[in-house]
Nucleic acid binder design. Structure first.
Lengths: 189, 189
DNA sequence: GTCTATAGATCGATAGAC
DNA sequence: GTCTATCGATCTATAGAC
């Protein structure tokens, strides 16, 4: 039995990519109508609060995806190493090996973050917490595991910045490989 | 003999902070007139091409600062370790221990980068090149030195993202300390 | 160089018919 | 749910007096 997606739900992935390309302030409603094919009235029908509600829905969607495909597997996998490997694989896939940016990170950089402070804060907190938890299972020093997790998440964000700046996805994949290798060597060593 | 700064030059640091707060698209001319005290006519007198020229001037100003205070010292210092230490000290100071973001990184993330592609590309290229050069002086594996430099610059960018997202500058200083320590241990070890 | 005034486009958002 | 029409505000940018 296929899940029927409402028109609202079908719109969210498109909105996500539009915000990713243009940022929150750089995205206009007419751009959204152009790229979604939905008129303004339809957009306001689905998202009565307008652009802010659209971005909120996108952030919620991103949050769900990461919870399901990254954060929970880090907690659930029997073997932390495989959970961590799974994280790198999924994150690499999600960001299309560096071709896509992280919308949450982009929102964090300018005053857009004041519109969605808790969504932005929680996304990174849960990511760091989950990764730290997985590392800590193998690596007994709790504080050090946390620092390693924090640095890894930050480096992934920075790798996206550099890949976009240089317009070169290889920068991203290169850094991702190093990060995974470092975690594994810290855990095993 | 004091250097006389032209009115245009005096405006640039203010513009820099305004763009940092709001992003390029999020910055309006009326916001600029409010925060600089200059009327629109004065702004267009100094920057005939408008907002784009203002951002260009800011990027050029940032570029100069990093060349003078970070990139050249990395090349010039007799002892690479002290050049690298100097980089971390200055970068930490420049970003006010994580309270400020990197405007070039922020511009890179959305389609603002299409307005200033070479400025954005060069900033990171020169940074990575200079750091790789300094590392390579002590650490003979050229390719590995480059990768370490690339990862370090990316991690600094990511640390800024995380610090802003969490609204906690300690995240930034913590990661900066780890990065410097790692480079030193790779060089010495 | 700076002022006032304003053009012309686009912004987010809404009303009302269907 | 989607259409057309439109509101008032704001946007970038310019004109012309001083």
């Amino acid at each position: 039995m296929e899940k029927e997606l409402s028109a609202r739900e079908q719109t969210i992935p498109k909105l996500r990519e539009i915000f990713r390309q243009n940022g929150f302030e750089g995205t206009s409603l007419s751009e959204i109508t152009n790229q979604t094919g939905l008129g303004k009235s339809s957009l306001y029908h689905f998202f009565p609060q307008g652009k802010t509600e659209m971005a909120e829905a996108v952030l919620h969607d991103i949050d769900q995806w990461f919870n399901e495909n990254v954060f929970l597997p880090l907690r659930k996998s029997e073997e932390p190493v495989s959970g961590i490997h799974h994280m790198f694989k999924e994150v690499n896939r999600y960001f299309k090996t560096g071709d896509r940016i992280c919308l949450v990170g982009a929102f964090a950089l300018d005053n857009t973050r004041e519109l969605f402070p808790s969504e932005i804060k929680d996304y990174f907190k849960i990511w760091v917490d989950s990764l730290a938890w997985a590392i800590n299972k193998k690596y007994p020093h709790k504080l050090e595991a946390r620092k390693l997790a924090e640095e890894t998440v930050a480096s992934i964000q920075g790798a996206l910045v550099l890949a976009r700046a240089q317009n070169d996805t290889k920068v991203f994949t290169r850094i991702m490989r190093r990060l995974e290798k470092r975690i594994l060597s810290e855990i095993d060593g």
